[in-house]
Design a protein around this nucleic acid. Structure first.
Lengths: 234, 234
DNA sequence: ACTAACTCCGTAGCTCGTACAGTATATTGG
DNA sequence: CCAATATACTGTACGAGCTACGGAGTTAGT
């Protein structure tokens, strides 16, 4: 994964590489979802036998983690942007990445980044945060929280686009329908009031952008408080 | 799951119930983790054949979602507490629940709550937030974010307790060791600076409490801004 | 009683990951 | 140039685990 294995070895030249294998696997996951990802299919797509893959990957699990990192796009570059602007980009791009590859959310989405590409994202966020005056450990905390926010909104998006298995009514509609059927004002006063106010959004663009920015600004307001505090007493 | 199936039916009396089945499954998951949960084991623990379970549950998947909701404890009761105090409790209890049942994090942890017990938590948070002046949709957003925060910190805790598979060095130690080996100052300036400052914590009590409260207060500062804004112009 | 609806059981089938043993290929050392 | 050896890949097969299916016993309605 870190691309560090040169050396002239003995036997036949490898016909493949970890990169090619993960690439093929990603293509399949994109097309058929994680549930539709079989080792045999990956092999078939590469024109080799199933067992050939095990020369590049010890186990399917390992392939999955390689896929997760390989799929990570380049992070937006900070440049000279204000931290708030940059991190808005960063978080939105992070979310869009996850939303565009739903299978990522099925592979332990809340483990810390372990590959080179994932770490680059973390690096950029830390750079910007520390540049704006935060201590290193504070920056780590903020970055972690932002990443969690991106992940959870992406998951929400996904969940609202049909995964919530209600009979023949996917999306927010399906979810609120289920709630309406079971939520009574006595046991769930707050929830049923929220339902009455249609707080769960009516369109499928829920969390699309307004809500996303809303929660993010909540966080940033907090960060702002912290930064100004640091500027007074570093 | 919603416990709504009365009616005198015809055949033999059911010897089990969905409740008993999920209870048994939960016991096994607690003991052996999600990976060690086999339908046959659940059946054995109940003294029935494997296939008997399929009278109560259509598929293993369905059993899992039932487990998730059944495992949810009662939410803390709001009483007259200040929103900030209550939600601190709420979020911490949420996190502790997830941390105490690691298998929960393996069952699509970021889908919105669908069962009665999970919804009770959402309900309490909404009640408190709306009572303090937020609009319904704002409350939903905040609650969602808090839940995500609880989930991600729980996952972080879990990840730091050995899941990060580094050879013979679990915990933060293992993670930072891996980073140290691969992160160079040129490609990862921010990250390597953070590593030098030991920002990733030295003890295994990382995120234990100080960091948890830190991120949470960040969020709450943002909420506070919002609430005071709402009090001026509702 | 008789039948219909229902619960539970045993068996068997299917899917999928992967261990193993064999064969072909390239590199090294004599 | 020719072994010897390490490596890449193949085919077969095994094992784990979920679940479809048909049968046997059980209770309620008529």
């Amino acid at each position: 994964m870190w691309g560090r294995e040169p050396g002239a070895r003995r036997g036949p030249r490898p016909g493949l590489s970890l990169g090619l294998v993960t690439e093929a696997a990603i293509a399949i996951a994109d097309a058929k979802g994680l549930a539709g990802l079989r080792m045999s299919d990956v092999a078939a797509r590469l024109g080799v036998s199933t067992m050939a893959l095990y020369g590049y990957v010890a186990t399917k699990e390992e392939l999955l983690t390689a896929m997760v990192d390989a799929a990570v796009p380049d992070p937006p570059e900070p440049g000279t942007a204000h931290w708030r602007d940059y991190l808005t980009d960063w978080t939105r791009a992070h979310r869009d990445h996850l939303a565009g590859r739903p299978w990522l959310l099925d592979i332990s989405p809340l483990t810390p980044p372990a590959g080179p590409r994932g770490l680059a994202w973390l690096d950029r966020a830390l750079t910007v945060l520390m540049r704006s005056g935060l201590a290193a450990d504070e920056a780590v905390n903020v970055a972690t929280t932002l990443s969690a926010y991106a992940t959870s909104t992406a998951a929400l998006l996904r969940g609202l686009q049909g995964s919530v298995e209600d009979e023949a009514a996917p999306g927010v509609a399906g979810y609120t329908a289920t709630l309406d059927r079971f939520v009574d004002a006595e046991n769930y006063p707050g929830l049923s009031e929220a339902l009455r106010s249609e707080a769960f959004g009516q369109g499928d663009d829920w969390v699309e952008d307004a809500d996303f920015a809303f929660g993010l600004n909540l966080l940033f307001d907090g960060v702002e408080v912290l930064i100004s505090r640091r500027k007074e007493q570093p």
